[in-house]
Simulated scan of single mutants.
Amino acid sequence: MKILLIEDDHSLGEKIAEHLRRENFSVDLAKNGEDGQHLGETGVYDAAVLDLGLPLVPGIEVLRAWRKAGRILPVLILTARDGWSEKVEGFKAGADDYVMKPFRVEELVMRLRALIRRAAGHAETRILCGPLAYDAQLGTFELEGLPLRLTGLEWRVLSCLALQKEHVVSRADIFERVYDGDAEVDSNSVEVIVARLRRKIGAAMIETVRGHGYRLTAGEA
């Protein structure tokens, strides 16, 4: 899963990005509103973390521009502004959640997971697909009741498929959500990761839909 983080405080932005990557998210970090707005309009993200006090373009204007353009990605506002009027303005502009600074990064992660899960249409935190179980709040997988050990890239691909189980996810969509924007990767890397996942959970569970992409299905494990 991929997060767009827009934060002008260099130290805080890097700290948040590092923690999110440790939690297996891929992250694009923008340090001003102009760059962040452009990324949000052109990139593929599962959620955005948006500061309000940004240079060049204020965060609230970035959010308004996204919503006016029809961008529906979940947006969590992260700000030091604690006035009720600012919160109301943020929600009216289209924010989905609001976290005040200072904060615990662990809480930020949990809120992001909840936003992503709900945006994918899942009310329950535990998503089941045959013998595979994904706890979308804790970010853990089990296969036949046992913990499933995955690399960061494997986790990103499998969580992307699990959130849209029984639906086809395009290779391009998976690629966009797996890698950071500045990562140098081979063009067939998604296929390599899918092959590794099939060895771990069973080949029948990840179906290749020719010309379209991949689908996680309740096949034989």
Rank of each mutant, 00 (worst) to 15 (best):
L5K: 00
I6W: 03
H10L: 14
S11E: 11
S11A: 10
S11G: 02
L12G: 01
G13L: 05
K15F: 07
A17M: 11
H19Q: 15
R21L: 13
E23H: 11
N24S: 08
S26R: 08
L29Y: 00
K31Y: 03
K31E: 13
N32Y: 05
G33E: 08
G33M: 11
L39W: 15
G40Y: 06
E41P: 03
E41W: 04
T42G: 02
D46F: 12
D46R: 14
V49K: 00
L50C: 06
L52M: 11
P55C: 07
P55L: 08
V57E: 02
P58Y: 13
E61S: 09
V62D: 06
R64I: 09
R64T: 09
R64D: 07
A65D: 13
R67V: 14
K68M: 11
G70Q: 03
I72M: 07
P74Q: 07
L76H: 06
L78H: 10
L78T: 01
D82G: 14
D82N: 12
G83M: 11
G83K: 12
W84K: 13
S85T: 15
S85A: 13
K87P: 10
E89Q: 15
F91V: 05
F91E: 01
K92A: 11
D97N: 07
Y98R: 01
V99M: 14
V99S: 04
K101M: 09
K101E: 06
V105R: 04
E107Q: 12
E107R: 05
V109H: 01
R111E: 11
A114I: 03
L115H: 00
L115D: 04
R117P: 00
A119L: 03
A120Q: 04
H122Q: 08
A123T: 10
G130F: 04
L132Y: 03
L132Q: 04
A133C: 13
D135I: 10
D135T: 10
A136P: 07
F141R: 00
E144H: 09
G145Q: 12
P147H: 10
L150Q: 01
L150A: 05
G152S: 12
E154F: 06
V157K: 03
V157I: 12
L161Y: 02
A162V: 01
L163V: 09
Q164T: 07
V169A: 00
V169T: 06
V169L: 02
S170W: 05
R177W: 00
V178G: 00
S187F: 14
S189G: 02
S189M: 13
V190L: 11
A195E: 12
R196K: 12
R196D: 12
R196V: 11
L197P: 07
L197Q: 10
K200I: 13
I201P: 11
G202F: 08
A203Y: 10
A204G: 05
A204H: 06
M205A: 14
I206K: 02
E207Q: 13
V209K: 00
R210N: 05
G211Q: 02
A221K: 05
A221R: 14
